[in-house]
């Protein structure tokens, strides 16, 4: 994990002179951040087509200039309630590396806040306990004005292997229920 941080920050260092830029957003009432380098685009929430037989955290698919892009409900993915789509809801598009190139995935967030510059000195490794989020989702904690913001590990939160696996599990669970019924 610490390796990961070093690589991530050194990457940022090269570009931003030791200060990383992070996009902060709200999920529910909590603030989270991701490295601005991961973010491709932020769009307003448009018509989302829901996909049947998928777990709650799959919000649906959208048409992004002709290609079909999945949207993950970040709140549900972080084991919270499903997001209520409001006027402030946005989709943050990030590119996730797959075996055959990168794929765009949208994250449904409740509100996009701002872009912060966080010096590496203010970034600390994730605590082993004390959060209700899976620890491997947390890349690091950033201190901003004496408040800690969780920096999300995008590659883990939006791990394609896991997303597709879990949708599989959700289905088999449903079928198990069906069988036991």
């Amino acid at each position: 994990m610490s390796n990961l941080i070093r690589r991530e920050t050194s990457h940022v260092v090269a570009v931003q002179e030791q200060v990383g830029q992070y996009l902060t957003f709200l999920v529910g009432t909590e603030s989270f951040a991701v490295s601005i380098l991961d973010v491709k685009e932020i769009i307003e929430i448009a018509n989302v087509t829901r996909v049947p037989l998928t777990p709650d955290y799959i919000h649906g698919v959208i048409n992004l200039r002709g290609s079909v892009v999945p949207v993950i409900d970040l709140s549900a993915r972080l084991s919270r309630h499903c997001s209520e789509v409001s006027k402030r809801s946005c989709i943050v598009l990030v590119a996730v590396e797959t075996g055959e190139g990168s794929q765009l995935i949208g994250m449904l967030v409740d509100e996009v806040r701002e872009i912060l510059e966080i010096p590496p000195a203010n970034i600390q490794p994730a605590p082993d306990f004390g959060t209700d989020i899976r620890t491997d989702f947390i890349q690091a904690m950033a201190r901003v004005d004496d408040v800690f913001i969780i920096l999300l590990a995008i590659s883990r939160v939006l791990s394609l292997d896991e997303l597709s696996l879990l949708s599989d599990l959700a289905q088999s669970q449903e079928h198990l229920v069906a069988a036991s019924d």
Binding site: T49, V51, P52, L53, T54, I58, V61, N63, G66, S67, V68, V69, P70, T98, Q103, I105, L160, L163, S164, L165, S167, D168, Q171
Partner: peptide, 18 residues
């Protein structure tokens, strides 16, 4: 349009269209 890797194990749906 392909649905991508996330949905590759989805039953009942094979793709999407715009």
């Amino acid at each position: 349009k392909p649905l991508g890797k996330v949905f590759e194990r989805l039953n009942g749906i094979t793709g999407a269209t715009v």
